[in-house]
Write a protein that binds this DNA or RNA. Structure first.
Lengths: 207, 207, 207, 207
DNA sequence: CATGAATGAGTTTTCATTCAT
DNA sequence: TATGAATGAAAACTCATTCAT
């Protein structure tokens, strides 16, 4: 996000790869330095310690995801126009599809997310990311609009946003095992479809 | 599952705690041995190495979850009778609720799952567990029945089972951050409700 | 002082040498381990960390000095008998001479004392040591006796003991530079003589 | 002593503080540069390396002590006049008192001396300093005069000067532990008094 | 002259694993 | 079979020194 020097972004790129491949604990800062073509001291000079390096790499990766989705779903258009044109449910489908396709191409970023959750007990991912992706209200706002437009049933937006994010998270984390990332788009699409339309034959919408 | 000596099950119990608290890499086998009241060599004699110890602990914990859910949902009754009595969707609700309540009480087990995914790139959790939990067909079988009974729409059972499991996984993993485990039941219940009934106002079931 | 295992005392002996030769910061624990013929881990297992190792080595050395002086000056006799036989001033001379001869033979111990003062801002040495050496009253007690016996002028014992110890300390520390330790006995003897008899021609004893 | 640029003397002043506080090994040249408000390269340009920087700082501090004592004891007067006026023993008392009061105010300088002794096995202090302080014969010369004037008993001046310096050194080094520097003047005064008048009741001057 | 980014040699410390008792 | 002392490979991190700007 902030201006990164050339050296810093090269280190960060390499760090993402190495941390994704080896995991946080297993990764050797020396290896990162070597692959980035700098001295180990340089890595420490710029990022302080291994932990901060990891966090920076993780943040960096996640911001790229957010930027990618935004570009994919909204592009240069006005978000409201897009929403008006395609409707809330299609918007959700597009977001999910964009998500899935990103991680299909870069499954390493999933490992980064998992490492962060495992080591630091912080999930950089779900809702927060979406928030950023929308640059305002975020997912909750999207659900809010959908309800106002009569496209979605009435729910509290918070829990629904959580549920959506949790589902994506679960799909991506479990879908990226043993090369399963190749089927990520289908896996996510199926989940989203159920999420939107429900599994049961006779919905109790009118309850 | 297999017959564990007294010593072994004590070690395993302690290992679960320590691995959950410290993470796999961070955990010290010496500490586990001390807390279990045995020598370090004894731990290695029984479990070979740290990795196998972790895997055994993880498996142990997950089997307890499965047993708990089975007892909670099925008890001593005949599974088919239970299903006939309460219906497929309520069965799903009960499974999810049981799950949530278990992890609410033992959030450490969630950390174990995450560690396993992070370190060994294996998710011990979702489908597999359900399989075991049902002691036959598992989740897929349940969905199969639901479709046959006309309670669920027609889907391929595999992807639906994945979607359900992914959703639970995501809810639990993200719901157990910063003491959030206290709200796990609500979080899971909301997700399941959406999953069953859908988010959209006008389902396209008939499309 | 406490029972040291064979391994521990070997490590300690080597550590004294290495710390004396290289200084605390400059010493490499690996070198100590190698010279002691044990693995580096063994050193850490027994002494925790470099700092504690140093402190243990320093304490060990100082206790040897104390034991040496005691044996030299008192031997197996009764301290009071010795004092009665030779008088207070000769006792001081003997203590100082024993001190000097010890450090003449083992100038490395002086470096240990200096390192401790420099790194940890604690002077393991002067009064304290004497205290231990006497196994009761210590230096102060000796001065007390001397005054009671009319051999010494009236002073507060505390400051006098400090002055005596400071003088010994200064002589030893400065006398062990550039191989000067060979002249340590003379240097110390001269200082003690002045200390006892004064430098001025017309003492103001009767003031 | 030599002409120092503004930058150099600022660096030196800061270096004294930092070395005194942290010790030689522990001190970080970067910190010195920062506190002096210059780049790290500038420090190296002016002083070559860390060791020379320390030695320069130490020398600087010691020269200040010497200048202080000189001013305190001699002022602008003629040294011989002062000596004639107050006598040798009082001169010694004044030197010691001035010494003590200086270190009482700047105990950091003591640490510098100790560091130098510990790291470089050179004692910048005792005799040498006095030499400089007197700008000729120094301490030895003073004792020489005292003997000629019949104020001091006959001794070899070298050993006596050593003894005096050792005693001051020991008092200052051991007196500056744990805030003990507040009592430095008393500690030193007592030692000097003993040094001058002797501890024993019946001096053997006439032996 | 001044600067401060880059470097990498050098050290401490940890801990899984072994094996003699 | 149980033990726990010994081991040493492995890694994080520091900081004096250099040198291009």
């Amino acid at each position: 996000m902030l201006n990164l020097s050339d050296t810093e972004s090269r280190i960060l790129r390499v760090a993402c790869d190495v941390f994704a491949r080896e995991g946080f604990r297993n990764a050797d800062v020396q290896v990162i330095a070597d692959l980035a073509g700098v001295g180990k001291g340089t890595v420490y000079r710029h990022f302080g310690n291994k932990e901060q390096l990891f966090l920076a790499a993780s943040k960096h990766a996640v911001e790229e995801v957010a930027a990618h989705i935004w570009k994919d779903v909204i592009g240069d258009a006005d978000p409201d126009d897009v929403l008006a044109n395609i409707g809330t449910t299609n918007m959700l489908r597009k977001i999910a599809a964009s998500y899935a396709s990103y991680y299909q191409r870069k499954p390493g970023v999933v490992e980064l997310m998992i490492q962060e959750r495992a080591e630091f007990r912080q999930s950089v991912f779900p809702t927060h990311l979406m928030h950023r992706a929308e640059h305002r209200g975020g997912l909750e706002r999207l659900f809010q609009r959908g309800m106002e437009r009569g496209e979605l049933r009435d729910f509290e937006t918070g829990p629904v946003a959580d549920a959506f994010a949790d589902m994506l998270y679960g799909s991506v984390v479990n879908g990226c095992l043993d090369g399963g990332h190749q089927h990520l788009p289908e896996r996510v699409a199926c989940a989203v479809e159920i999420f939107i339309n429900g599994l049961a034959c006779s919905p109790i919408h009118e309850e």
